[in-house]
Amino acid sequence: MLKMKKLVMICLLMALGFSASAQFSLGPRVTLVNSKLTLKDAVANVEEGDAEFGYQFGIFMRAKVPVIGLYVQPEILFSKAESVLSVNNQDVSFEFNKIDVPIMIGGKVGPLRINAGPSLSFLTDASRSDVAGDIKDNYKDTSVGYQAGIGLDLLKFVFDVKYEGSLSQFGETIRVGNTTVNTDQRTSQWVFAVGFKLF
């Protein structure tokens, strides 16, 4: 949680640092995500399931960097993502609640924005349909990924379509029956976002 507070402070300082510019924007953000839990290492009796929908909400800030013409867009989003794995030929649903902090760097090509950057995720709780209680301890508190995509600004609305991949593993083990096996779980997702510029 201390790391999260530091990141929030960095984002706020970035916003304040560029606030004198007419190119500074801030507003609410809502996002539909289509996420999948992938297994980079094969595990007996465990298979990847279909992608599932989730959502995010929070705020975004955007500031044009003087001279070079690019912009920086940090976001702070509360996220709920769902994934499915097949364990012993039965679908098992996983639900993850996180705080996501993507920091996008981009520029304009005609009417479109093209952007990419790192995305940090902080896990707040996790659950599994066939296990009672919170399973957060089975996963890393923090994971690092990347996002890349395109966007369009229309009046005060901000639209984005992005792909997010993982640079670090999210989980190292999974329970199969009474046995815990090693694996390399990573999340990937498509992000469909809408924001509104308050100023």
Rank of each mutant, 00 (worst) to 15 (best):
Q189R: 10
S121W: 10
K36P: 01
E164I: 05
P102N: 13
F199Y: 08
E164G: 00
S19G: 05
S119L: 13
F196P: 01
D137W: 04
L13N: 15
L16Q: 07
L167C: 06
E48S: 11
F196K: 01
V43D: 10
K197V: 01
F192V: 11
T180F: 10
E172Y: 00
V30P: 00
M104T: 14
N34G: 14
D100R: 03
R186L: 06
F57A: 14
A116H: 09
R186G: 01
S35H: 02
L152C: 10
A132W: 10
I68E: 05
P118S: 08
E47C: 07
S119F: 01
D141N: 14
G177S: 06
V101E: 07
I114T: 09
L77H: 04
I59V: 14
F199N: 13
G149W: 04
G133I: 09
P74K: 06
L12W: 11
Y163T: 05
K64Q: 04
L39D: 02
E95W: 00
L70K: 10
M61Q: 05
Y146L: 05
K5I: 10
S83E: 15
T38A: 05
D137R: 05
F18H: 04
F96M: 12
R62M: 04
F192Q: 06
I174M: 04
A148K: 06
L85P: 00
A132D: 14
S93F: 01
G107C: 05
L2T: 07
G195F: 03
G133H: 06
F53A: 07
L120Y: 08
S168E: 07
Y71M: 02
Y71G: 00
T187S: 12
S168L: 11
M9V: 08
Y71V: 02
K140S: 10
S121P: 00
N89V: 13
E75I: 01
A42V: 14
G165A: 01
V161L: 08
L7C: 07
Q23N: 11
F157T: 15
S127T: 12
A22P: 09
D153K: 10
P28M: 03
F159M: 15
V194M: 09
G107P: 01
I59L: 15
K3Y: 13
T183F: 02
K140R: 13
L152N: 12
M61P: 00
